[in-house]
Design a binder for these strands. Structure first.
Lengths: 186, 186
DNA sequence: TCCTTTCCGAACACTGTGTTCGGTTATGGT
DNA sequence: ACCATAACCGAACACAGTGTTCGGAAAGGA
């Protein structure tokens, strides 16, 4: 259970990949633990040595994605356009575009609940950081909740539709909606 | 199975009420069919004569709520303020406020997925009807998706927080955010 | 190499599901 | 008020999936 053990790494990686693949194929609900085991070619008892249950494995997959996205966002802050407050929106759409399969598995029809929640919170925090200091006339909680929910909805829609627009375009559209709305609340 | 039979009405009503109550108590996932049966005092085979499974019963509960909300919305069209395009938003928040327990059960942490989806679609259609004819510069699909998602998010947040503001106030805040955003896309 | 950790896999108990069927009871139509 | 009909009951059953256990095999790190 060291985590430095190659066997442990291989096992966990196989299980996560198998789950994602199976979710894409038939949806989260219709995937059984045994299915994952067969696909990953892992023994039953081994699974339960690493994860409590299917949800736990799903969460682990999710943490990977979250970490990846947070890494991208952090890199942007140090980048050339750290003065553009709407830049994170573009990064988010680009990240989804670059990981289409994973997003379809984790945020599509199947894992919508967990997917929504995680992205929602991520965006929520980011927005709050940007908006709290400026002193709005409207209640910050509601404003933040409003636009975070909106961005998640658009992202999920975009994922489900199979990425009909390029990421830059849809990000720009979102920016055009959020900006006047926030301006009005200023 | 006529639907005109008093026994049928009573049975279905008992089951729906039992499910809602149990969801409020311990969350959708932790409610078993047997729990519902015990609470409603209904025989096992009877349940399966009416509903395919737990999800099916849940959907039926949902249809009730949806019908109720649609009824309110329809009544507004004939009412005094049918010229105000943002009036449906107020109606929605008032409807939730008037049915707090049901909303907590159906749209709270538990049934978030199904709850979100249903409200989302309802608002989506309503918004599309209002916005499609006016000819926006931005893609209508995205605009509609954006604000529908936003409204659902705020509604769910408001429900989960235990209705911290009066419905009129939060509706007004939403209106103040959606209006300039749509204006800018005009 | 050698000692430790992990993996294997079959077996098991357990929970919850959805169906069946013969007998009982309530309902609506006449 | 009557009665044919439809709905309800509940015990029993097969079934699918879960999570645990344990002794032996195999692979890893130092």
């Amino acid at each position: 259970m060291t985590g430095n053990d190659r066997r442990v790494r291989r096992t966990r990686r196989s299980l996560r990949e198998a789950l994602v693949a199976l979710i894409v194929e038939r949806g989260y609900e219709k995937v059984t633990v045994q299915d994952v085991l067969d696909r990953a070619d892992i023994g039953r008892s081994t699974f339960y040595a690493h994860y409590r249950d299917k949800d736990d494995l799903f969460t682990a997959c999710f943490d990977d994605l979250r970490a990846s996205l947070e890494h991208e966002l952090a890199a942007t802050v140090d980048g050339p356009s750290h003065d553009d407050p709407t830049r994170p929106i573009g990064v988010m759409f680009e990240h989804a575009y670059a990981n289409q399969l994973v997003y379809q598995a984790l945020c599509g029809r199947a894992g919508a609940t967990a997917g929504t929640r995680m992205l929602h919170r991520l965006i929520l925090d980011s927005l709050r950081d940007h908006l709290t200091p400026v002193g709005l006339k409207l209640p910050v909680d509601v404003v933040v909740e409003y636009h975070a929910g909106a961005l998640v909805a658009v992202l999920l829609w975009w994922v489900r539709q199979g990425f009909p627009q390029p990421p830059a375009e849809i990000a720009q559209t979102c920016q055009k909606m959020i900006t006047p709305s926030v301006m009005a609340a200023f």
